[in-house]
Design a protein around this nucleic acid. Structure first.
Lengths: 162, 162
DNA sequence: GATCCTATTTATAACTC
DNA sequence: TGAGTTATAAATAGGAT
């Protein structure tokens, strides 16, 4: 019965902390869904417990929202991002013409090129560390998005041009 | 003064809908932050308005959480490789040693390599014809599967953090 | 543990400035 | 527009089962 108001600080007692982790997550997810319905918006929640367990929710879907975020200019993955300290992304920013000389490749990019040339994707990926995997995963997402966009473009043209 | 309880359905009146969109987002973000503090967890929220405006929040950061999600086995990257009945394995199923000399690249592969080197994925993909798109899509699938497999491999080796 | 209960705290719909 | 105010609905801490 909520004997007293909550202090917003880490709950010391493990059992209580876990109960709160479970109960509040339910509340958070419900609020997120109500939010989308009421305001005709799209929202997603990503949660990782201290132990590393994953919980996620998204409307219409978590993957769609993550994709949308990744391709958004305000994300570090987005085309217009590329802040000084942020992780490097492909297509590093300019809508301008291609650079006169190739930009230096990251280690991950170098691995990919090598993998393609040797037709041995597996051997290249097999050595990646977690950070590189995340980078590669983000890059793959970008390719997927562009493939989808190109497909849409083709579809649109075929309707008009035959 | 909350004259009546909220019905969870799309708010018709535009002004009201937008007010709710703004106010509830504040509440959602606050709850998310409190949640992380109280239960010692990590959480992120991604929101897109109906008009396409982006709002995001993450603890410790949105990018970190998205990265963590992307590389998590339960994301789309992990799902497909997880099951025994999943798609067949990449790289032609051969456990054989790599070829002594590089195989000739397909036109698509050549495009990809060039794209990586120029950091201009978009321009490369933008010129693809449907057949090439299919090929690229297949390549992307292969990367996804190997990322997932590698992720699984890492997880198995390390006991992981606390 | 999960789920139900319920006294309180918290969030917020309508309103005002 | 956006930032309070306040009466009421919703969420929830601690208990009970």
């Amino acid at each position: 019965m909520v004997r007293r108001r909550v202090e917003i600080k880490a709950i010391e007692v493990k059992a209580k902390r876990h109960t709160t982790f479970t109960k509040r997550r339910q509340g958070l997810f419900k609020k997120t869904q109500d939010y989308c319905t009421l305001s005709d918006s799209q929202a997603a929640v990503i949660v990782f417990s201290a132990a590393g367990n994953f919980f996620g929710l998204g409307h219409p879907s978590l993957n769609l929202l993550v994709n949308r975020y990744i391709s958004h200019p305000k994300s570090v993955f987005g085309k217009e991002a590329a802040g000084a300290g942020g992780p490097r992304v492909l297509d590093g920013g300019g809508a301008e013409d291609g650079p006169a000389e190739p930009l230096p490749l990251t280690e991950t990019e170098r691995r990919i090129v090598e993998a393609i040339e040797r037709k041995r994707w597996d051997s290249a990926v097999g050595d990646l560390v977690p950070e590189e995997l995340s980078e590669l995963a983000a890059e793959v997402e970008k390719i997927k998005l562009m493939v989808a966009a190109r497909k849409k473009e083709i579809k649109g043209k075929s309707k008009v041009d035959g």
